[in-house]
Design a protein around this nucleic acid. Sequence first.
DNA 1: TTCCCAAATGAACAAGCGTTCAGTTAAATG
DNA 2: CATTTAACTGAACGCTTGTTCATTTGGGAA
Lengths: 195, 195
Amino acid sequence: MARKQGSHSDITGPKVRAAALRLIARHGYAAVSMRQIAAEVGIQAGALYNYTPDKQTLLFDLMHGHMVDLLGAVEAADFDGTALAQLEAFTRFHIQFHLPRADQVFVSYMELRNLSDENFATVEAKRREYENALERILRVGEVEGTFHIPDPRITTMAIIAMLTGISNWYRAGGRLETDKIEAIYWDMVRRSVTA
Amino acid sequence: MARKQGSHSDITGPKVRAAALRLIARHGYAAVSMRQIAAEVGIQAGALYNYTPDKQTLLFDLMHGHMVDLLGAVEAADFDGTALAQLEAFTRFHIQFHLPRADQVFVSYMELRNLSDENFATVEAKRREYENALERILRVGEVEGTFHIPDPRITTMAIIAMLTGISNWYRAGGRLETDKIEAIYWDMVRRSVTA
DNA sequence: TTCCCAAATGAACAAGCGTTCAGTTAAATG
DNA sequence: CATTTAACTGAACGCTTGTTCATTTGGGAA
């Protein structure tokens, strides 16, 4: 029963990636089998290989795709104004981008060690690029005199860890609205870099 | 060739846990086989079952042991003085405890989803207890008037995420000494909760 | 209506998995 | 020196793994 109605490549392809993302986020790359992914989509394991050359590439595509989306969005955001305004924009951007992408964020942070060396290097470079966007803002603020930062690189890592940590407790439909979360975290970020 | 010289239970047991910790930290629980762990210790896979009833329990023992150590240490530390002094003590304690335990920290944060429901609940309760130690300090400072914290629970999670994030970039023998790291992070933590 | 071929199936492959267990070894005990 | 037994080996168990491929299916084009 191949080629059921509406069951074309353009539909199954995204379904495969969505199923893989969901399952890997919940159980981890190594714990999820190609057969489980296929079952989630409603096909046989062999058919997955119409959409990915192998399991490793499927993982890489998910993680790399996420980083490309992130860098595209941060570039489009194009922060400007004072360093303080830029830092606020970055903080709110980070939260707004990451909160609705819980699975992507989870996979992108947890499955780094399951990437091949080459794939790891590619993803890591993208992550580094994102971190640099924040570090640049911090350095501008330091020069401006708005910020007091003993070590911009460390402060960068500290802020990103703090913000990304939201994913550890945030649940959609929970106690707090997104803008309330933004306000609380921006408050902490601002205070932590200003005198 | 069983019972080689000095190859007793008291020696092999710790070796098994050390090998499991190392391998799981590097490759993940699901990706590490009992045969790999055994090979690292220098025994056959079957012999592992003298030291653990099964693979799941081995993981649980590592994670639960870490949390028990952590809670024991935080209790022994017995922070006192003003809320600010307590927060500084907690911050420095967290860094000092976690930095030399990179593998334990990594496993304890990454492998939660590979615990059985019951084991997860046990470990999660311990983690919650640790978080509460910090939250209590924040609430005292809020009452004291030293801190300005809109939501103590969230600030707790934010601070812990920030501090634990050190493990993401810290490498022993790197650019920064432990006390320098402590100073930088304490500076950020202090500013983020004080006006 | 006929044909094409993208998109599936389903069986097969060798390899590896966690776990069990009868048998072997050698340090410790009497 | 003889015996006991904790610690280990090595083979086997049934099952799952990622991946391949000959075969089947059926929607769309001619």
